[in-house]
């Protein structure tokens, strides 16, 4: 008998707990499902949005990679309305017909966006996406371990730094490094050029301490490595934590990347999605996010609210000549397979 009672109690508790989770906001008349990168928005912005828009019940989930997001958005019963994919993933999503066209007349803050960051190759007329953050890829290095100036990707092949080099564990980013060093385009589909880049990365492997992702930032802050391939936003954060660190975008050129906001084609809550997008484009909100993330913002109006220390940094406020030598990724469709098999072979060595 006792067992039955405790079983019933347990079941009741589980039911209560589940009800507690789904209950949420009682005034809400609209739902909104947002899928974003982990730690990619100022939590306060979310809080403020919830307070200012009690009519919207915001469900916020995080992901760790574009690939993971792609799987979520391709699923038949995708619940997400708003998402933050990167450049080449956006062109992939457009090709897969998963994005809703964006009606900019519903976005009162749209004019805040700096025109330099509109009309990128992955979404030519910004039909489907609104810029959220952007930055470069470069080398974050520890000035106590690296004496010479960092101007070229080939320093990542320098035997002196064996075991102290971190590479980014991502196909396109790592292949980009090798392709740029060889003087090829990072969007090449020539099998010979890709094979050369592969050979170069295989040659580099014994010097590499690890292929990492978000953890590289903390490894570099802790002084566990001499240099790492990183995104500019991570670099600024790391430099603020550890002043021995510095960041350089090599002369050969590098990747300029964008994370844009999109509305899914399957969205059931389009109205709430537009309210959220417009909120993100607000100058003060965009500045709050930029101050928190340390990633450059495409929002020109946000500038006056941005931390002067950030604005003074070349990593955040990228000089035009650096932007000019950078190239963006585009979706390579079928040819991307060449990159994946090369990368698998490199990693499997």
């Amino acid at each position: 008998m006792k067992r039955i009672v405790s079983f019933v109690l347990l079941a009741a508790m589980i039911c209560l707990a589940m009800a507690g989770c789904s209950g949420g906001n009682s005034e809400a008349t609209m739902q909104l499902y947002v899928l974003n990168w982990g730690d990619y928005i100022d939590e306060e912005v979310l809080e403020n949005f919830r307070t200012e828009h009690p009519e919207i019940d915001l469900h916020y989930t995080t992901m760790t990679s574009n690939e993971e997001m792609l799987i979520q958005l391709q699923s038949e019963d995708c619940i997400y309305d708003v998402c933050f994919p990167s450049d080449y993933t956006i062109s992939k999503l457009i090709n897969l017909d998963l994005l809703a066209e964006i009606d900019t007349s519903k976005l009162s803050n749209y004019e805040n966006i700096d025109e330099r960051f509109l009309n990128q190759p992955f979404d030519p007329d910004n039909t489907y996406s609104v810029p959220y953050a952007w930055g470069t890829v470069g080398i974050l290095y520890n000035t106590t371990m690296v004496d010479e100036p960092v101007t070229s990707w080939d320093i990542l092949w320098d035997e002196k730094y064996a075991g102290q080099i971190y590479m980014y564990d991502s196909v396109r980013d790592s292949m980009m490094v090798a392709l740029e060093l060889l003087g090829y385009s990072m969007n090449t589909t020539d099998p010979d050029e890709i094979a050369e880049a592969e050979a170069l990365l295989v040659e580099q492997k014994p010097l590499v301490q690890a292929y990492g992702t978000d953890d590289l930032r903390d490894r570099m802050i802790a002084g566990s490595g001499a240099m790492a391939v990183t995104y500019s936003g991570d670099a600024i954060y790391a430099i603020m934590e550890n002043p021995d660190l510095a960041y350089a975008v090599p002369e050969e050129g590098s990747n300029i990347w964008f994370d844009n906001v999109i509305i899914t084609k399957s969205s059931q809550n389009v109205e709430a999605a537009y309210i959220f997008l417009d909120y993100l484009l607000d100058a003060e909100v965009a500045a709050a996010n930029a101050n928190y993330l340390c990633y450059s913002t495409p929002n020109a109006a946000a500038e006056e609210f941005i931390d002067p220390e950030l604005l003074a940094s070349d990593v955040f406020n990228v000089p035009q000549d650096v932007i000019d030598r950078c190239e963006g990724f585009i979706d390579l469709e079928e040819d991307e397979q060449l990159y994946h098999s090369a990368w698998t072979r490199i990693k499997a060595q």
Binding site: I71, A210, Y211, G212, H340, T344, A348
Partner: peptide, 18 residues
């Protein structure tokens, strides 16, 4: 540090990255 790819990693890459 992703340097020693194991069979499980290989399967994961095939499903998620490729």
């Amino acid at each position: 540090g992703s340097q020693f790819m194991l069979y499980g990693d290989l399967i994961e890459t095939q499903f998620l990255s490729v």
